[in-house]
Design a protein around this nucleic acid. Structure first.
Lengths: 192, 192
DNA sequence: AATTTCATGTAACCAGTTACATGATTCA
DNA sequence: TGAATCATGTAACTGGTTACATGAAATT
């Protein structure tokens, strides 16, 4: 008897971060909490009330699987790793085409996808990701600049500056993407 | 009989955006939804399921007050404006000192505070805000660079690049803040 | 012996998402 | 007359926050 699990169409950034981490190596909830609190990895809270339920959810839909470590001792720990199905779904998820909505509403998710991409889908797909990313970011910069041009000049100084902050942030992302593309190109050519 | 309302110690970004908008002029829920969907204002969803309950909450704690417009017609609309108490609380909230946690976890909130500051607390306080902002951002850039220096070079290319994306984003914020400070300085000197 | 770190959880709460629902007004 | 826009809401669900709870192992 096979139980059909509903696949989440949209993964929360927390789940994605967890999947990325356990894709690298088996990790316990505590390991993940440590990563979140001791590194600038995304901006995740290390609260157990978020992480342990998230692990349970991912295990229930069979993307990850927990294995009890040190069962003999009095302090066993649960180490999770990706299931084959989980890896497949993760591959599909991180390789999705980048939409304009992604860069407007889900920048942090895009960066998470990117951070783990190399590991999960390899350099060529990562390269494609960066090209799409750059194109979408550049397009959005144009939209914002258009908006900036029509901004009523005398109305609100700080309002205008806040808008410019957004534009410059996206421009920084574009510059970064160009550099990253160059680095990847080099690495790919060396590996051949 | 005075009912004592519990003041929210932490305001959600959505509530803050709403407060900022109604501080400029009386606005209805529909007006606010339009702002969110037609301008790059923050990254807020215009869903009625978020906005109308938020307006109700803010009205219940007496920061804003709704007034029925066009009561004679069959399609009245509710225009909210800040109460004196609401304005006072908003002034206090946006002027709070900026903590390291703010730049790490709540960048979007800081930008919202800034976008409406001029209107709510005037240029001198806005100027102070920017100076604090710059200092905290620069400090965090150092932390990230320190982290970058200790990053294992061969481990993950995309991981390293994602970290650099973060650093460059904060550096862009610092540059922006320096420019904004210069602009404000000029404007303040002209107005004297 | 006391403190810190390892390690995993639960319960109440809250806010935002999605989807649904309603009806007036204006414009093509 | 039909579509788009104006205008406000509710209900079910979901996931993250805060706070609480427990106890072993390692360190000082």
């Amino acid at each position: 008897m096979i139980s059909i699990m509903k696949e989440p169409e949209q993964i929360s950034t927390l789940s994605l971060a967890i999947l990325g981490l356990v894709s690298q190596q088996p990790r316990s909830g505590y390991d993940i909490r440590k990563m979140f609190s001791s590194t600038p990895m995304g901006h995740f809270s290390a609260s157990p009330g978020a992480i342990y339920p998230a692990l349970k959810r991912l295990e229930k839909c069979e993307w990850i699987q927990g294995q009890r470590q040190n069962s003999e001792t009095l302090r066993p720990k649960l180490e999770y790793s990706l299931t084959p199905a989980g890896r497949q779904n993760l591959e599909k998820y991180v390789s999705q085409p980048i939409t304009p909505e992604d860069v407007i509403w889900r920048m942090d998710e895009l960066m998470l996808r990117f951070a783990f991409m190399e590991n999960i889908v390899g350099l060529p797909t990562t390269f494609q990701f960066l090209q799409q990313f750059l194109a979408q970011v550049e397009a959005y910069v144009c939209t914002l600049q258009e908006f900036r041009r029509e901004f009523p000049e005398e109305s609100s100084l700080t309002g205008r500056l806040a808008l410019e902050n957004g534009i410059e942030g996206y421009q920084a992302n574009a510059r970064w993407a160009r550099r990253a593309i160059a680095e990847l190109k080099q690495k790919i050519s060396i590996e051949e």
